[in-house]
Each structure stands twice: as structure tokens, then as C-alpha cells.
Design a protein around this nucleic acid. Structure first.
Length: 561
RNA sequence: GCGCCUGUAGCUCAGUUGGAUAGAGCAACGGCCUUCUAAGCCGUGGGUCGGAGGUUCGAAUCCUCUCAGGCGCGCCA
């Protein structure tokens, strides 16, 4: 449709030029917009505004000259007019819109999804919370956003895998193990204090108890070197299990849990070989006894240490090897979802990609701004180590999974989010998710109603609509609603291109508002069989789009509420 | 000091690669259930788009400067 209109417009301008009514060197690309106001038609073309200077005439005159040469097929276009500063506004024929409804029902759950033309293999890495404690609200935001990004890219025709990077290496694992051991000794009645910089949360005590249950008192008096690996591993695996359970509850499932420890297995290890390759390529160098990656060559502030003077590799070295490994699995695009406190890390990872021989544009970092927690309006410091945090599980218990997901997705990632648990609880009933879900439920109640009164239901609407007379759907309010529905594929494409997940919930709220308003004014089920059928087709299309939109967010679409 | 993000209605936030009269939810106020679900609908009030310049037919959007807030600038992870 857009391509056809583009041709019609371009031909009109060329015809005006040929007729000597316009002069310009080269026609700018034809841009088509969806006007915000119904009075401005269905498609607006601001081409004359861009052409005014070249043509040395006011844009309005340019439009009038061109519009006179527009010839249109009446089954597609019903009216063309010049308005405002010089827009060419096009009104599409009602028949065009009712055909759209049939397309929606035919496409079903795939409506709004786009084919695989430019499909890429994409890896979305997200959450990747250190397995040292439960997920808190901040992790929840990243989890929900990452999952929605994956859903969105899938809908746009990409082949997407989800991955969680498990940071099970490093000093934090030792501290975790020692924290657990202290709790273990305390359970045995020993007088031991938990050092301040250790993990204070109660969950550590639970893990210690489980070790006590399975291993008995065996680790009480042995040297640290003997018990530490056992305690660290046992603790992080238990925590990771809990994290996995919590994410599953949110409908988030990973294709792979990538263990950082795997980067230190084998001979040479992936980390060692990555470093060796970069040294050989002279992209890394030795200085002051350490090995540095020359990231400044690609825009970083300073070079970064990969191997410390004491021979121990850095977290960054793991990440270099990890991203090298990701590319080696054949992904054309990597998306990392990070908390905003890691933004200083982007430049060095981009540089790292370049030095590994990949296009830095192949790596996209989605920065999710921090969630600052409030309790009764007062900021609460959150830290896993201090044990002071609100877990994702607590939030989900209070306000529900759907409302939590919707809440996190209904703002752009760039914006910091203030999360007041008391406020979130209070707003549960007002959460826009119910407004959208309610619209969907209403559609399904209509199916039930019409089955009682007319003896057909959802199945017949989908199966037979193509043979029904939809000519009743021509009034302005109906067309306005249809137009809203048909924006969905464009919204999905736009949101996918920009990784702007929040576009979906905003669109859904507008669509739900349109439907609720229409529902109040117009009866769907009546004695007029043709009208009832036509309106049910309309309702079905609304329900389908809301269902598909909610699916992109991982939010349920209930049939009754 | 340097870098990234943010600043739009009382509050929380949208604003589609620069477009027509800057929008929505909540809060406030006033209406609507004998009818397909009132978790709904209709209406009213509410704005110097942080500020100042600039770019052009046209700026919340782009550029410069500036103010305010958040975050980050380790041979930590």
C-alpha cells in the first residue's frame, strides 16, 4: 500500500514538472506520515515542504500544483486534498480498511510480525546477575526488558537466543563461600562473627543449613583451602537455582546459562588464547608487568588491564573472551542488557569487538537505568552484600507478575525509575495493564454473548468473515478504530528497529482506550445480523492485536476478568 | 575535572529518524450502571517542553553555552 501511494505521489510531482508547473532538480524521497488528527486524512505527505526552496515557491502552491496531477484508483483512495502549510492529505477508501480486518484475522497470532527478509541470528544476554543473592527489583527491570527485547526481535523476523552469563569466578565467590561457612559454624554453635564486607542476607543461613544437612559437621575444623570450593560452589548453585525459579515464574526462559568458569577450562583456556591472539596481533601489550588491551585506539579513555602484574586475569579479560566466544558461535548481532552503572564499560567492549575483528556496530548495549527504591518516599540504599534490598519475588507477590512486567516495560530504558513499594501496592488496581487486559476480556465476553443470541462464536468469525458483508463498517468512528488497529505492524517494526520496548504498552493503552470508548457508544450484538457480524469482526481484530501486543510483553491476555 | 543518562501538567511518564492546535494515566472537580463486564465511559481545570542563544519555511526534537538531578570514571566484580 505504502509503495503504491509513494508511486502515485512521485508520478504527480513528475507530471507537474513535465507540464512546466513546477521546477526542481531532484525530487527528495517521498515520505508518508500518519496524521495525528482524523481530519487530516489517513496518509499525509509533506514532500512539498521539503521541495519549497528548490522550487522557489511557497510549499502550499507546490502541493496544489502537484495534487492536480494525482490520479488514483477509487478502491484505494477516496479523497486527496492540500491542507495546512502544504501537506497533501490522502483519505483511503472504506473498503481498504475492512479488507485490513480480514488480513488481521487471517494472520492471527502472527499479525504484526514481520517476515525473515533481513533476519539475523541474535544473542540477547541479560540479567546475568551475580549469583551471590536473590534478584532484586533492579534486576527485575533488566530481566523484563531483556526478555521483551528478545520477543520483539523475534517478531521482527530474527532468530534470537537468550543467554545468562554466570559470574562464578573471582573474589566474590570466595566471599560468598566464607560467608556461608561462617553461618555454618554458627549453626554448630561456634562463636564466629560475620565480617562486615561479607554477605549478610538470611538466605546465606538457609544455604548453610542445607550444607549441614547433607555434609554434616565435616567442614567445621578443616583448613579453608579444603572447604572453600565446596561452600562457594554449593552457595552459588543454590542461589542460581532460586534465580532460575523466579525468572521462570516471570515467563523468562534462557536458552543457555553460560558459566564464566568455562572460560578457564582446557589448555589453553579460552581466556588464555584470546589474550595470546591479541598479543600476537599487537593489539595488546605488556607494561609494568601487566597485559593491557589497547582500547584507546578505538575511542576508549585509557587502555585496560587484562592480566594483572600478579598474573591474575581481570573481569574484563573474561568479558573479552566471552564476547569472542559469542561471535564464534555465529551470531551476527550481540545485544547486552546492562544496568546503567556499567555505562563506562561500553566503549571498551566496543573497542574489544573491533580488535577481535568484528564490526563494533554488531554489539548493541541496552542500558537500563537504575531502579531507585523508595520506602514511604524515602530513598533506600540497596545492596546485596548488606542484605538491604527488596527482592523481585516480594514485588511479584504484592502486585503480580503481569502488573510488574507492564510497569517495568511502560517507560523507556533510558529513564531512571523510582520504585516505591507502597505506591506500587496502592496502584495495583489502577495499573494500566488491567485496562488493556480488560479490553481483551470484553472481546471474549462478546464471543460468549453472540454465541447465545446468534449461534456463532469466535471460530465462525475467524473462519467465515471473508464471506460476510462488512459494508456496515464505514462510519467515521469505526474507521478511526480500524486505523488504530492497523498501526500495530508499524509499531512493532519501529519498536524493533529502535529496541524501544515501551512503544508497545503505550500503543496498547491507546488502542484499549479507543475500544472502550467505542464499546460504550456502539452495541456489538444486536438483532441486525449483518451489523452484528461486521462488528464482531471488528472486535475480533481488536482482541487479536491486543493479544499479540501483550504477548510481545510477556503479559497474559485473560478471556475473563 | 572528564564521560553517559535525565529535565515536558500537581505526580508518574509518552511524544515515531525536525512537521499541522505538545498528549496519556494518576490525583482534583462534575456527570453516566434496568441494556454485550462500571477493572468502563463522558466532561472540566491544569504547560515559559529547566534556561539562553543559534540553524530554517517550521524546533520538545538538531548545534553551542548554561543550570539542576542521577550514574560512572580500579591491576574490583
Amino acid at each position: 500500500m505504502a509503495a503504491q501511494l509513494t508511486d502515485i505521489i512521485r508520478d504527480a510531482f513528475e507530471a507537474a514538472k513535465k507540464a512546466g508547473e513546477l521546477s526542481y532538480d531532484e525530487l527528495p524521497p517521498v515520505i508518508l506520515e500518519a496524521p495525528k488528527q482524523a481530519a487530516h486524512g489517513d496518509v499525509a505527505c509533506p514532500l512539498a515542504l521539503a521541495l519549497a526552496r528548490q522550487a522557489k515557491r511557497p510549499p502550499r502552491e507546490v502541493s496544489i500544483a502537484a495534487a492536480a496531477h494525482i490520479s488514483w484508483p477509487t478502491d484505494l483512495i477516496s479523497k486527496v486534498e492540500v491542507a495546512g502549510p502544504g501537506y497533501i492529505n490522502i483519505h483511503l477508501a472504506p473498503g481498504y480498511w475492512t479488507r485490513q480486518l480480514l488480513d488481521i484475522l487471517a494472520a492471527g497470532d502472527r499479525y504484526g510480525h514481520h517476515s525473515t527478509d533481513g533476519g539475523q541470528r541474535v544473542l540477547v544476554e541479560f540479567v546475568s546477575a551475580n549469583p551471590t543473592g536473590p534478584l532484586h527489583v533492579g534486576h527485575g527491570r533488566g530481566a523484563v526488558v531483556g526478555d521483551a527485547v528478545a520477543r520483539l526481535l523475534t517478531a521482527n523476523g530474527h532468530r534470537v537466543d537468550r543467554e545468562y552469563y554466570v559470574n562464578n569466578v573471582g573474589n566474590q565467590m570466595n566471599i560468598l563461600g566464607r560467608s556461608t561457612h561462617v553461618r555454618y559454624c554458627q549453626l554448630l554453635g561456634r562463636k564466629v562473627d560475620l565480617p562486615e564486607n561479607h554477605y549478610q542476607g538470611d538466605y546465606i543461613r538457609d544455604i548453610a543449613r542445607r550444607i549441614l544437612d547433607t555434609d554434616g559437621e565435616a567442614h567445621a575444623d578443616t583448613p579453608e583451602a579444603e572447604w572453600l570450593p565446596r561452600f562457594s560452589t554449593r552457595a552459588y548453585e543454590t542461589i542460581l537455582d532460586d534465580i532460575r525459579t523466579e525468572l521462570n515464574r516471570f515467563g523468562i526462559h534462557f536458552d543457555q546459562w553460560f558459566s564464566e568458569r568455562d572460560l578457564y577450562q582446557g589448555a589453553p583456556t579460552p581466556v588464555q588464547s584470546a589474550i595470546a591472539d591479541l598479543l600476537a596481533a599487537e593489539k595488546a601489550y605488556e607494561k609494568d608487568g601487566a597485559v593491557w588491551l589497547a582500547t584507546t585506539r578505538h575511542g576508549d579513555d585509557k587502555d585496560r588491564v587484562m592480566v594483572r602484574a600478579n598474573g591474575v586475569t581481570t573481569y574484563f579479560a573474561s568479558d573479552v573472551a566471552y564476547h569472542k566466544e559469542k561471535f564464534s558461535r555465529g551470531y551476527q548481532r550481540l545485544i547486552d542488557v546492562w544496568g546503567a552503572d556499567h555505562h563506562g564499560y561500553i566503549q571498551r567492549m566496543k573497542a574489544c569487538c573491533t580488535m577481535l575483528g568484528h564490526d563494533p556496530e554488531a554489539l548493541t548495549v541496552v542500558l537500563v537505568q537504575l531502579v531507585s527504591l523508595l520506602r514511604d518516599g524515602q530513598p533506600v540504599a540497596m545492596s546485596t552484600r548488606s542484605g538491604e534490598f527488596i527482592t523481585l519475588a516480594e514485588v511479584a507477590d504484592e502486585i503480580g507478575v503481569d502488573a510488574t512486567r507492564f510497569f517495568f516495560l511502560t517507560r523507556k530504558c533510558d529513564a531512571p525509575l523510582e520504585f516505591d513499594l507502597a505506591l506500587a501496592k496502592a496502584q495495583t488496581a489502577d495499573n494500566p495493564v488491567y485496562y488493556v487486559q480488560y479490553a481483551h476480556a470484553r472481546v471474549h465476553q462478546l464471543y460468549g454473548k453472540v454465541l447465545e443470541t446468534h449461534g456463532f462464536g469466535r471460530r465462525e468469525v475467524y473462519a467465515d468473515a471473508a464471506n460476510w458483508d462488512l459494508s456496515a463498517l464505514t462510519d467515521a468512528e469505526t474507521l478511526a478504530l480500524i486505523k488504530q488497529i492497523t498501526q500495530f505492524p508499524e509499531v512493532v517494526a519501529q519498536a524493533g528497529a529502535e529496541l524501544a520496548v515501551h512503544r508497545i504498552p503505550y500503543y496498547l493503552q491507546e488502542l484499549a482506550a479507543g475500544f472502550h470508548s467505542y464499546y460504550y457508544k456502539h452495541r456489538f450484538v444486536s438483532d441486525d445480523i449483518a451489523l452484528t457480524r461486521a462488528r464482531l469482526v471488528l472486535a475480533a481484530a481488536v482482541g487479536q492485536v491486543i493479544h499479540n501486543g501483550l504477548a510481545l510483553m510477556g503479559v497474559g491476555a485473560p478471556e475473563r476478568m
